[in-house]
Design a protein around this nucleic acid. Structure first.
Lengths: 252, 252
DNA sequence: CGACTTGTTGATGTACATCAAGGTACGTGG
DNA sequence: CCACGTACCTTGATGTACATCAACAAGTCG
């Protein structure tokens, strides 16, 4: 439970060589855009697993892009109940959600060691004024984030425990696949079943039992935090998955 | 279950006299912004209760601002289960969510007769290029929408049935108050307990029973779709409400 | 013609029986 | 020690069934 360290002022990776470039998850930028982004970037932040990057109720001076590692966005009730809103993967943007400006409405915690790209929030306006295409991207990102939450809400509100687990794991798997975090049909999740439970609005015990049922169906496996898709079609069927196309990136 | 009619080409209300201006929910626009918006607006759409404004999976050519009336955004599973994502009130924007461009990920249905302001989606880019302040507003709106979904997710995932109902009704009441739809401590909701159930991820029967419990607590009443707050402090306490400030509108 | 009666429909209220999910306890394995 | 697995009991939530109540349409009567 460390608190976030200050971003290192030195820039480690020039944006032109950004490790994320080339990933399907990210669109191509024009040279001008890239130049602006490079200037916008104020440094990199290395955070180890367990670090709280953003705290609900506070205002962060920074916006982040995840270069590597996993995190979770979550909210807690006064008595400690926790709801994980979404998991954060490489290429995801942190800090926009909830409020473009103003206090965060949720916390963000690193689930694994991470490297993040840091941007100063106060210069956001420059981006809007000078780079409409990037401004558009930001709206798109916020919108996509909202869409994921909507899908989660359907899960928690209306899907059965089994559907819920299948859907969440499949969705996470596909997201991980998009940023090349899978090997064959396996992903190494950096979180426990408790996290899964808190994301799905279920208890730990019931999550475990349901996970066993899923495994029994032979559609997938879960062993030592490694999730393996055995039968993608079957898993998709159980999940009732039909999320529209993996959202092509903005084209403007 | 009518399908949306075409927006009338004639513009009924000039933006300068927009009925929403002056509502706390909306920020003030500069004369230049107002002029652009006036030109951006392509007409008005009148829809009667039950009209489906947007259908999941289709791409809408328009974006809307609600001038009057209520709607709901919802998703349905293949077997008919429905989850209401959020209610839509005057001054709310429809069409951004899910995807700035591309197919809608949810449907929108009018719960009462409505009047909507229509904007052509294909001219969105002009807005981004020429009016960064408005572009910023759009991101802000998307972000705020995401925040509401997050709060809903916490409700459905982690709050008890009683907290959930109290929270949802209180939140709706406060939103209605923001656009002057309340009289004293009453709101006339244009939806039934079934809608409430579908929003909260509960069954109709259980929603009803829980609503009775809430009424028994004397914090609020529900009679003929009229919701009355009797003891705001008590209701707030039951709801565990502590949503941060009512989101000041963007200041840029 | 207008007032009252009856039938219908949709939204609510309530009572079961049933089941899914929660919570505690205690095991295992690394 | 912590994550995971499982058993057992409790409870919250569901589904079905049925009664109530108001709104509304059709029909009837004074």
């Amino acid at each position: 439970m460390t608190t976030a360290a200050c971003p290192s002022p030195a820039r480690q990776v020039p944006c032109e060589n950004c490790p994320l470039r080339g990933e399907r998850a990210l669109r191509d930028f024009s040279p001008e855009e890239l130049e602006f982004i490079a200037g916008f970037k104020s440094g990199e932040l290395t955070a180890e697993a367990g670090t709280t990057l953003l705290v609900e109720g506070t205002t962060s001076a920074h916006l982040y892009t995840v270069l590597s590692g996993w995190a979770m966005r979550y909210k807690t009730l006064p008595d400690g109940r926790r709801q994980i809103l979404n998991f954060v993967l490489p290429a995801d943007f942190i800090g926009l959600q909830g409020t473009v400006l103003g206090a965060m409405q949720h916390s963000v915690e690193a689930l694994s060691d991470m490297v993040l790209c840091v941007f100063p929030r106060e210069r956001l306006w420059e981006l809007y004024r000078g780079h409409p295409s990037l401004a558009f991207d930001l709206t798109w990102i916020a919108s996509r984030e909202e869409q994921m939450l909507g899908e989660q809400l359907v899960s928690v509100g209306r899907r059965t425990a089994l559907e819920r687990i299948a859907f969440a794991l499949l969705h996470l798997f596909l997201r991980a696949e998009q940023v090349s975090l899978t090997s064959k049909d396996k992903v190494q999740f950096p979180f426990t079943q408790q996290h899964l439970a808190d994301a799905l609005g279920m208890s730990l015990v019931h999550t475990n039992k349901t996970l066993q049922r899923l495994v029994a169906s032979k559609a997938a496996r879960w062993k030592n935090r490694t999730f393996e898709v055995l039968d993608r079609a079957a898993l998709t069927a159980i999940a009732g998955y039909q999320m529209n196309d993996p959202q092509p990136r903005p084209f403007i």
